[in-house]
Design a protein around this nucleic acid. Structure first.
Length: 495
RNA sequence: GAGAAUGUAGCUCAGCCGGUAGAGCAGCGGCCUUUUAAGCCGUUGGUCGCGGGUUCGAUUCCCGCCAUUCUCACCA
């Protein structure tokens, strides 16, 4: 006892209270409670409720207690918000008041009573009956507030992410981000449905990964005695479904990439991928513009969006720029006619050097674009027609075989989607895979492995098809004005 | 991978030019039947991230390590 740790003492006190509550004949963990209202309902309809004096029942977590001897005020919080309650000993009875005295901040309680307004003008519940719904055994951070000013906010980033349940209880600004995320997904699904897309589910555990330039996570199946990969993209499976005869398919799901983490990257993230038969990449541009307009209007009520202090207008159509025009303009030379050596000199001049494993003309162009062009792209806009080397799954440009019909969407200087007219010539696809194999042999760990079954499927025949991939996490960041991917993920990856 | 900052009570933070710690909130005890960052009185609570070094003496100075956060790099 004398050398008890401070936290241990707080825990002990709560467990002892739990026992005392049990000794009073009260079950601290009952099974259910019938509610008639939520806190926000009471506050918004207080005038009626106050005159009718009808019985209202609420349930919530105790967030503040102000005891005054034989009566007490407290605040409870439910999923709609907070409301004050008033508990009087001579109303609820001696035993209940004794139980009440044994409650802590964090406990769940159920209440019946009537609505009234206090002397100080706060709409409150005058409690007739109070029951404990679940005892809390650990201290919650205590956040206080006066006139909108927050005191002692629970701010430790690491603890907030690791104990998201505490963060959600205590920091009211967190929940709406995830509600918006959910609405954004629901609106997107409805929109996809309107556009006749079928939602599908393809393997996350894959014998061979592909569909993006990234390193995969490897896992092992014991009974099959073989390694499997967590998917880095849905692409190759969704195209198999197009080959199978579904005209429009999509999947919203997690992809996994074994790469670094920063405020834009989490090892697992959510992506929307869609494929539409008989369409090319211009279809996807229209789709993206219209989806963004729909999302903006439904979520924000306007096409104007503020992100990190800057305003963007999502009103369609968005400007379209060509990849090589942008890059040549920024470098001041026609990049397309530069030799590999000249290109490398240009990269060096921009202070870019290719790390080990970064090989080929494509990578150089990619880095140059990332360094010289991307930061200046406010957006929304589309960048079109990328070099062939960067896009092993995209179809050659109909007017320029050195390019592919591909675009990326940009907003706030960040790429947020990627789309192309899908390569459906099996011979060309095989050649592109073989080129990837050469890059891999040179040490490019992100080069895509040759997928023989996918080629088999392409040989069965894939109609002309347009494909699109879009990161849901970044989309959520834009629409909730969050600056870190961790703030739009309920449980971000921690070390 | 590099740099910067941070690490003291359950939470939020002080702690000077070295003398082994302080506040508010929470907790505990008392008073209080319309309070609201409730109030008043009293009170518990600390391996000062870890390990070395300097020193009579280190939370404080030095070195190393660990962890976290942010920025940059990497990452379609």
């Amino acid at each position: 006892m004398d050398h008890e740790q401070p936290l241990a003492e707080l825990l002990r006190v709560r467990r002892e209270k739990l026992e005392r509550i049990r000794e009073l004949g009260v079950d601290p963990y009952p099974y259910s409670f019938a509610r008639t209202h939520q806190a926000a309902d009471v506050l918004s309809r207080s005038a009626d409720l106050e005159t009718s004096k009808e019985t209202v029942s609420l349930a919530g977590r105790l967030m503040a207690i102000r005891g005054m001897g034989k009566s007490s005020f407290a605040h409870i919080q439910d999923s709609s918000g907070k409301i004050q309650i008033y508990v009087k000993k001579d109303i609820v009875g001696d035993t209940t008041y004794e139980v009440f005295k044994l409650l802590d901040i964090g406990d769940h309680i159920g209440l019946k009573g009537y609505v009234f307004t206090t002397k100080m003008g706060e709409i409150s519940l005058h409690v007739d009956e109070l029951i404990l719904l679940a005892k809390s055994l650990r201290p919650l951070p205590i956040v206080k507030e006066k006139e909108g000013q927050i005191f002692d906010a629970f701010t430790d980033k690491e603890t907030r992410y690791r104990q998201r349940y505490v963060d959600l209880v205590v920091n009211p600004e967190v929940r709406p981000v995830f509600e918006t995320r959910a609405r954004l997904l629901a609106i997107s699904r409805r929109f996809l449905e309107e556009w006749s897309f079928l939602e599908t589910e393809t393997p996350i555990l894959q014998p061979l990964y592909g569909g993006a330039a990234a390193e995969p996570f490897v896992t092992h199946h014991n009974v099959l005695e073989r390694d499997l990969y967590l998917r880095i993209a849905d692409e190759l499976y969704l195209k198999r479904l197009i080959i199978g005869g579904f005209d429009r398919v999509y999947e919203i799901g997690k992809d996994f990439r074994n790469e670094g983490m920063d405020r834009y990257h989490n090892p697992e993230f959510t992506q929307l991928e869609l494929y539409a038969a008989y369409e090319d990449y211009t279809f996807c541009m229209r789709f993206v513009e219209e989806l963004y307009n729909r999302l903006a209007l439904e979520l924000l009520g306007t096409t104007k969006l503020t992100y990190e202090g800057k305003e963007y207008d999502l009103q369609a159509p968005w400007p379209r720029y060509r990849f090589f025009d942008l890059i040549s303009e920024s470098v001041g030379l026609d990049v397309r006619v530069l030799s590999d050596a000249a290109l490398e000199r240009e990269c060096n001049a921009s202070g870019l050097k290719l790390a080990a494993g970064e090989v080929g003309r494509g990578k150089m162009l990619d880095k140059l674009f990332g360094a010289r062009v991307e930061p200046k792209l406010g957006g929304p806009c589309f960048v079109l027609d990328y070099p062939l080397e960067l896009s092993p799954l995209a179809k050659r440009h109909r007017q320029d075989p050195g390019l592919v019909e591909r675009f990326e969407g940009f907003l706030g200087g960040r790429e947020f989607c990627n789309s192309f007219s899908e390569l459906n010539d099996p011979a060309d696809q095989r050649a592109r895979f073989e080129d990837q194999g050469k890059l891999r042999a040179l040490g490019d760990l992100e080069a895509q492995p040759l997928d023989e079954d996918f080629l088999h499927a392409l040989e069965i025949g894939m109609p002309p098809t347009a494909g699109l991939g879009m990161g849901i996490d970044r989309l959520t960041m834009f629409f909730t004005d969050q600056h870190s991917i961790r703030d739009v993920l309920l449980f971000p990856q921690m070390r």
